[in-house]
């Protein structure tokens, strides 16, 4: 490990509670430390931060714009609000948009009951979707020996892309296309089973928050995922550098 750099301490308020922080701690880390819940989807401990899902946006006193808690560092005297009516509305609506984008029918999904999207929808009270489904046809790829990707369930959080690139160093996954046509692809959009780069390590399966990348042969509700390996691996990588 590199020698510890001395870090300055800040004090701030989150939802009216006084908390102290190192200057390199984000609002999200602090909230978790203090038992304050902020929803996230794209972020996963051990991978780089992209700030893409916008669920962790919070209000900061004196700032016009909402800021992503995952990427905003504590400053002295900062006053953060994580759970206003406005934020709750935005978060529910973002989830509605996700549900309207793809096929998220929990009852027939292998990840039913083990899905981060489903859990968030329940926790945040998103009980119906006001938008018409975009009815997109996205390819399902079953060519891999052990895994399946069903892009209709994908929420484009890019965790698979990041874990494959940053931890496995294979960079099999990437994103192609833009807007609602964006898709996760393997290699140069060739069948997963033919991939030269995929090591079949299965890390993408384990970090995928929904039922988009799963193991073959799982029945409805069977696809439990565990990504607790990730922080350890990420630490080891860092130490190696």
């Amino acid at each position: 490990m590199a020698t510890a750099v001395r870090s300055r301490i800040r004090t701030l308020k989150i939802d009216g509670r006084d908390v102290s922080a190192r200057e390199d701690e984000t609002i999200l880390e602090l909230a978790e430390e203090n038992g304050i819940f902020i929803p996230t989807l794209c972020r996963i401990e051990g991978l780089s931060l992209v700030g893409a899902c916008r669920l962790c946006l919070v209000e900061v006193a004196g700032m016009n714009k909402l800021v992503p808690a995952c990427l905003t560092y504590a400053t002295e005297g900062m006053e953060v609000f994580t759970d206003s009516e406005r934020l709750r509305n935005y978060r529910r609506m973002i989830l509605e948009l996700l549900f309207s984008e793809g096929n998220h029918i929990c009852a027939i999904c292998v990840s039913n009951g083990k899905c981060e999207l489903q859990a968030l929808a329940q926790r945040l009270g998103m009980d119906h979707v006001r938008f018409a489904n975009l009815q997109q046809e996205r390819l399902v790829d079953m060519t891999h020996e052990r895994f399946v990707v069903d892009r209709n369930r994908c929420i484009l959080c890019a965790r698979c892309v990041r874990v494959c690139d940053e931890i496995e160093w294979a960079h099999t996954w990437d994103i192609k296309g833009r807007g609602v046509d964006a898709r996760v692809i393997t290699d140069l959009d060739t069948p997963w089973g033919e991939s030269d780069t995929c090591t079949s390590c299965g890390k993408c399966v384990r970090v995928c928050p929904v039922g988009a990348i799963v193991e073959k042969g799982r029945a409805v509700g069977e696809m439990a995922k565990r990504h607790d390996f990730l922080p350890h691996l990420a630490k080891m990588r860092e130490a190696k550098k």
């Binding site: 973002i94 018409a132 484009l156 807007g179």
Partner: peptide, 21 residues
Amino acid sequence: CMSESCGKCIPCRVGTAQMYN
């Protein structure tokens, strides 16, 4: 805007498509 959205963040990717609809 819908066809030029990069698709990275959800509000812009799906929100512009739903607004267009």
